[in-house]
Design a binder for these strands. Structure first.
Lengths: 243, 243
DNA sequence: GGCCGGCGATATGTATACAATGATCGCGCA
DNA sequence: TGCGCGATCATTGTATACATATCGCCGGCC
């Protein structure tokens, strides 16, 4: 296949083969795909063919494979041997696990977050909440979903624990997938004012209240899902036709 | 390079190119390297050259790279662009984050574990604890370290939450690295009788006590570390020679 | 005598070619 | 006419070849 994209990109950089070039390009592509999945522009089950992606982004399959593997480890895509990659379709069990994990970690982090939060953080969080509300109001679901996930991830990072923050970030990404499969259309996960209320508790330095509120918030999201295990691959015919 | 190993392996399988073959082989190699790191047979900082690994395991660099990337995502190896892979040397900050995370998650899991644990689980855990004690006594540090990590991971899995169990498993692997860097020789992380005591609390169905005990257990491990940030790469010459 | 710059070696990053496998579609047969 | 079977095709898995950047060494220069 031709490589017009590659040439254009490299030509623009001035000197071909610059060091950070490749790595940053990969990072960029990873984020592109990741965002598309989180924003539900790629629905669960969508197939991701290596050739197609390679052509779109103007790199060879080698680089695409690397990125797909990373996405697979983040459980955003599923790699079926000899069958290729597709956007992960979370099971009901996984959905429960993810929300239980968020309940434990995000709530547990709130006291520390309340202790460490700065004015700068508060300003940024308020801005994110505002943009999210705005996106919701103007019907930009994709943007709202991503901003919501970003909000939770950003919050966790304030705790100062990078390991737990990374974990929360991945849980939020997966939650977005779960919403895509089990969410009711028109009823987004996070209520528009919830995040603002949470910011209020944190601003007041009330970690306990923030923790409790986060707990209710997550429970509310989980409760809004209609988790009905749609006939899986390999429906149990015996059970279905037993009577 | 020749491929005698590959031929031998494939030939032994009976039919060449069997489906699971490649994937399982990769899994096996991943575990080999992972174990070597966890068991401190590969010390932090050790370089992992692709050619050398490819030759040792009888596959091409392509497969090795895939495995190295996975290990990097699990934060067991560090991939420096253009410099290759090396066993991760955890910083003091990372060590603190990892143990704080374990404190939150492993302790938080105990009540559910106490609720769900079965006789079969108890038997298995006791066996692992026994083998660990035995390894400690006979001076097989490597084995003891791995068994200790396995014990904690196994415990978390009983909770039924695969997501959190995976997380704990990775935290334990990283803890092993941390022990390699900051641990005092001759003083292994987990006291030999701690795990047995923990099993006792779980057998009694006392989740709260198990939770508290796990908390003390982890704190004890963390306290046994001598975390002194050894002069990092790029010593701050200004600060050093300012007086 | 010490430092800077060039040069060769080594190892990684990338692309491509080839091989193998699973899926799809068409054909023949019952 | 429906089903089973076989060939072709599309797609992934693997290895290898080539380009490129970095590291260490050595010689010249200040």
């Amino acid at each position: 296949m031709n490589q017009r994209q590659t040439v254009a990109e490299r030509g623009g950089a001035g000197r071909p083969g610059k060091n950070g070039d490749g790595a940053e390009r990969h990072e960029e592509i990873h984020r592109s795909i990741s965002d598309a999945i989180i924003e539900h522009r790629l629905r669960p089950g969508a197939r991701l063919r290596e050739d197609a992606l390679a052509e779109v982004f103007g790199i060879s399959r080698t680089g695409i494979r690397k990125i797909l593997q990373r996405l697979a480890l983040e459980q955003l895509v599923t790699l079926t041997p000899r069958r290729g990659a597709s956007v992960t379709r979370p099971t009901a069990d996984e959905a429960k696990d993810v929300f239980d994990a968020r309940q434990m970690v995000e709530c547990g982090l709130m006291p520390e977050v309340a202790r460490r939060i700065t004015e700068e953080d508060l300003r940024e969080l308020r801005d994110m909440a505002r943009r999210e509300r705005q996106a919701l109001k103007s019907g930009e679901q994709s943007t709202a979903i991503r901003l919501s996930a970003d909000f939770h991830a950003r919050l966790a990072r304030i705790s100062g624990n990078a390991t737990l923050a990374d974990f929360v970030e991945r849980l939020c990404s997966r939650s977005s997938l779960i919403l895509a499969v089990y969410g009711n259309p028109g009823h987004l996960g996070c209520e528009s004012h919830d995040h603002d209320d949470l910011i209020g508790h944190l601003e007041a330095g009330n970690g306990e209240r923030a923790q409790a509120f986060m707990g209710r918030h997550l429970k509310a999201i989980e409760a809004s899902l209609s988790i009905v295990e749609e006939a899986a691959e390999a429906p149990d015919l015996h059970r279905i036709f037993s009577d």
